[in-house]
Amino acid sequence: MKADSPKRTGSGIGETVLLPVRLAMGLIDAPLRWLQRVAGIGGMAAFFLMPNMLIFGIFVLLPFFINFAYSMTGGTALFLPDRSFVGGDQYARLFDCSNYLDANSCTEDTFWTAVGNTGWFVILQVTLMIIVSLITALILNRNLMARSFWRAVFFFPVLLSPVVVGLIWKWILQRQGLLNFGLYGFGFEPFTWLNDRNWAFAATVGVSIWAHMGFYTLILLAGLQAIPKDLYEAAEMDGTRPTRAFLRITLPLLAPNLLVVVVLVLIKAVQIFDEVYVLTGGGPGTSTLYITQYIYETGFATQLRNPGLAAAASILMGVVLVVLTLLQLSLSRSSEKKGARK
């Protein structure tokens, strides 16, 4: 076991720091011994599970279930008992369109704009994210000098808060920003990137890849490192060319990890909010308005808030996420099975 490393023998400072904790834990012990006597060991198991289950029940399960109730009520009142039952009206409203190919023809046109934006965002971001992190993982898997340094380089933005990420890039993309400075060197005129619909959209894709690619690179790298080296050696003995080795060995063996990463990226991409909210605020216009922001603004931010509509939209999004998660579970299970058969 790790804990019995020889270093940890003397722990004078730790002992004194822990002393109050010890005393407190000791004080709790007496009533808990009594509880154990009364409830038995099984009762203690319940006791240990209780706090988690309580918090989890109140703040996850309960909202999950009353979300359905919310989606069937109307009005602006916050508490469920004050709200009027409207049945499926909220859903009907979301789906009320005269032309299903045109978001503007819908009653809730912003919802469909957000859905459309999110769709494009997901397609672009997931594709680029996979390509970029796969290339990075392949490169980091080479016989590199100072590999852990390079891994850290790409991982660094993962820990930054979305707000910080948003602000860093907002600062870089603004008129007097670094990007314009760089382009100025090549003779371009300064341009306000985030005021342009397409560039703003591209920026949200790029920034979210910048912020998270390190994470997926790490997972893919772990998958690559699990591929036995002797496979490549055998291929080399057979005179296999590197590109062929990549297509015939690396990709098939990495496929399970790759699939898991694809679904993980998908799940995150569908929920994109924080960095975009800070970077563009959904603008210009509604060009970077994504579905989470739509739910947030419908439920909370605007004057005409409509919690029922927000709940209905969030349930639709939840359905998509559940499908994706189940897909991920079944994928990882079937890849486990495949691994077992080998």
């Binding site: 599970l49 703040f59 999950f64 929920q271 989470t292 909370f300 969030s314």
Partner: peptide, 27 residues
């Protein structure tokens, strides 16, 4: 209990923020 806990991985904040807000307010 284990399955229940794992199942919540599928319920991110963005899906339950409206009712969660009302619960937090009620408390």
């Amino acid at each position: 209990a284990m399955l229940l806990i794992l199942a919540t991985l599928m319920v991110p904040l963005s899906v339950i923020m409206v009712p969660l807000y009302s619960i937090v307010s009620a408390l």
